[in-house]
Simulated scan of single mutants.
Amino acid sequence: MNEEDMAKRLAALRSEHRDLDTAIAALVESGGPDQLQVARLKKRKLLLKDQIAFFEDHLTPDIIA
């Protein structure tokens, strides 16, 4: 996977992460949220966060100080 592909994937992951934030907030704000669904979305959001960190780490050049 080249840098351009990684940057595109990173953008898609960030977008999905933001969308999950919105979905979780909407479920919590609605009366009687489905706790199982909220838990699944939060778990997915954590997985995305790990993937985002992985791609950011690979796209950021190492700087030796």
Rank of each mutant, 00 (worst) to 15 (best):
I52R: 06
H17F: 04
M6I: 02
R9Q: 14
D62G: 10
R18M: 03
E16W: 04
I63T: 08
L36Q: 15
G32D: 12
D5R: 11
T60D: 01
V28H: 11
L10S: 06
K45E: 05
A26N: 06
I64A: 04
K45Y: 03
A26R: 07
L59Q: 10
L47C: 01
A26G: 00
D5H: 12
G32A: 10
L41F: 13
L59T: 09
E16A: 06
S30W: 02
E3L: 02
L27C: 04
L48M: 04
Q37R: 13
D5Y: 10
E3H: 04
R18A: 13
L27S: 12
A53C: 13
L20I: 11
I52T: 06
V38D: 00
A23R: 14
I64C: 01
G31T: 11
L46Y: 04
Q37M: 11
R44M: 01
D62P: 03
A11L: 06
T60W: 01
L36A: 15
T22M: 08
R44L: 06
L48H: 04
H58S: 14
A53V: 08
A25D: 15
D21M: 12
L20R: 14
I64V: 07
D34F: 01
L36Y: 14
D21F: 07
H17R: 03
G32I: 03
R14Y: 00
A26P: 00
A25F: 05
E4S: 07
D62I: 15
Q51S: 07
D21V: 07
V28A: 09
P61F: 00
G31D: 11
A25Q: 10
D57R: 12
D19C: 08
H58A: 15
D34P: 05
G32F: 14
L20Q: 06
Q37I: 08
P61V: 08
D50M: 13
T22A: 13
T22F: 14
L27Y: 09
K45T: 00
L47Q: 14
E29T: 10
G31Y: 08
E4M: 03
E29R: 15
E56M: 02
A65E: 14
H17N: 02
Q35S: 04
T22P: 00
F54S: 07
L20A: 09
T60Y: 01
N2K: 04
A39W: 06
R18F: 00
S30I: 06
G31A: 14
F54W: 05
I63H: 11
F54V: 09
F55P: 08
N2S: 11
G31L: 07
H58E: 10
P33I: 10
E4C: 00
A7L: 13
I52S: 03
A65F: 13
K8W: 05
E29S: 09
E3T: 02
G31I: 04
R18Y: 02
A12K: 03
